[in-house]
C-alpha cells in the first residue's frame, strides 16, 4: 500500500513538473519583439522559439540550475535530498502563489516563488524533524549566491543595456540622419534581433530550472532513475515547446501588436543584454527571474534615451518582488505542515 502511494505520488510529481515546463513555455514573452518587428511569420517564430527554449532546457538539464534547485541548495543536514512530500508542498505552493498572482494581475517571478517555497518547506521539515539543525539544513553559501543574484542580475541587465545603447548611439545610431538610412540600418538589426531572441530563448530554457529541479530532486532521492530523469527532461523540453506553440501565442500576439513601432535596434540591445545575464547566471547555476531582468533592461534603455520611467509601476513590481519570497515560504511551510500533520513527511 505504502509503495503504491509512493508510486502514485511520484507520478503526480512528474506530471506536475512537466506541467510546469508547459507553463514556462506558455508564459514566454521573449518572442513578442521578434513577431512585432515582423522578422518571421508568426507560426514560424513560434516554432523556432519553441525549439530554442526546449533545447535550452534539455541541453542544460544535466546540472547547472536544475542541480541548484534539486540538490545543491540543500545542506548536509538533509543530505541534499528532498522527500517526495516536500517536493509536493513546494510545487503546490509555488503554483498556488502564481495562480493567485495571475488572478490578481500581479506580475510574479516563478523562480522566486519556487525558491521561497523550498526555504519554507525545509524550515518546517527541520523544526518538526527531531534532532535536525537549521544551520545544516541549507547550503547557505549557495542560497546566499541565489538571493544575491536576484539583486545583481536586474541591475547588471540595466547597466549592460545602458552601456550597449550608449555605445551604439555614439558610433552608429546618432550618425543616421535620414529616414532611409535609419530604415536600412534597422533592416540589418532585424536579423541581429532574430539571433538575439533565439540566443535569449535558449538561455531562458536553460535557466528555467523549476520543472527540472523537481525532477532532479526525485532522482536524488532515488524515486526515479537517471534514465527516467533524462527521458522526463526531454518531455519537459517538448512540453515547453508545446506551451509556446499553443498557449503563448495569445500573449505574444498581443504584446507584438504594441511593439510594431519599436525599433529592432532597441529590441536587439534589450534581448542581447538579458541573454548575456541569463547565460552568465545559468553557467553559474543560479536561477534568476527572466521577467525582472528584462524589465530592468527596458528601464536601462529608457534611462539611456532620457525617457520617463513608470516609477509607480516599478514600485509595485518591487513590492511584489520582495513579498514573493516570504509569502511563498509561508504558504509552502503551511502546506507541508498540513501534510506532515497527517504523517506525510
Amino acid at each position: 500500500m505504502a509503495d503504491e502511494l509512493t508510486a502514485i505520488l511520484v507520478i503526480i510529481l512528474v506530471i506536475m513538473a512537466i506541467g510546469l515546463a508547459f507553463s514556462i513555455g506558455a508564459n514566454d514573452e521573449t518572442l513578442a519583439s521578434l513577431v512585432g518587428a515582423g522578422v518571421l511569420k508568426f507560426k514560424i517564430a513560434l516554432i523556432v522559439g519553441g525549439i530554442a527554449i526546449g533545447s535550452g532546457m534539455i541541453l542544460f538539464s544535466g546540472g547547472f540550475v536544475p542541480e541548484t534547485i534539486g540538490k545543491s541548495i540543500l545542506g548536509e543536514g538533509l543530505e541534499a535530498k528532498y522527500t517526495n512530500y516536500m517536493l509536493l508542498a513546494v510545487l503546490i505552493s509555488s503554483i498556488l502563489w502564481l495562480v493567485i498572482g495571475s488572478f490578481a494581475g500581479i506580475p510574479l517571478s516563478s523562480t522566486h516563488s519556487l525558491i521561497g517555497s523550498i526555504v519554507g518547506v525545509v524550515i518546517v521539515y527541520t523544526i518538526f524533524q527531531g534532532g535536525m539543525d537549521l544551520s545544516t539544513a541549507f547550503n547557505y553559501e549557495k542560497l546566499r549566491d541565489v538571493v544575491l543574484s536576484w539583486f545583481i542580475s536586474p541591475i547588471t541587465g540595466l547597466l549592460i543595456t545602458y552601456i550597449l545603447f550608449k555605445i551604439s548611439a555614439k558610433f552608429l545610431l546618432s550618425r543616421l540622419k535620414g529616414l532611409n538610412q535609419i530604415e536600412k540600418s534597422e533592416k540589418t538589426f532585424k536579423w541581429l534581433l532574430f539571433i538575439a531572441v533565439i540566443f535569449a530563448e535558449i538561455w531562458v530554457g536553460a535557466n528555467s530550472g523549476e520543472a527540472l529541479g523537481i525532477l532532479l530532486g526525485l532522482r536524488e532521492n532515488s524515486s526515479i532513475t537517471n534514465g527516467q530523469y533524462i527521458t522526463f527532461a526531454i518531455f519537459c523540453g517538448i512540453f515547453s515547446f508545446v506551451g509556446i506553440y499553443f498557449a503563448a501565442r495569445y500573449v505574444i500576439r498581443n504584446l507584438a501588436s504594441h511593439m510594431i513601432n519599436t525599433r529592432p535596434s532597441e529590441g536587439f540591445i534589450i534581448q542581447m543584454s538579458s541573454a548575456i545575464i541569463l547565460m552568465i547566471a545559468t553557467l553559474l547555476a543560479l536561477p534568476i527571474s527572466h521577467s525582472h531582468v528584462i524589465v530592468f533592461c527596458i528601464i536601462g534603455m529608457s534611462i539611456a534615451q532620457k525617457k520617463e520611467i513608470d516609477l509607480k509601476g516599478l514600485g509595485k513590481m518591487g513590492l511584489y518582488w520582495v513579498l514573493t519570497f516570504p509569502i511563498a515560504a509561508l504558504l509552502a511551510g503551511s502546506i507541508y505542515l498540513g501534510l506532515s500533520s497527517f504523517g506525510f513527511l
Binding site: 518587428a37 529616414l179 535609419i182 530604415e183 510594431i260 513601432n261
Partner: peptide, 9 residues
C-alpha cells in the same frame, strides 16, 4: 517590406 516607418510614410 519597410518595417517601422511604413505607417508614418
Amino acid at each position: 517590406k519597410l518595417m517601422f516607418s511604413k505607417a508614418d510614410r
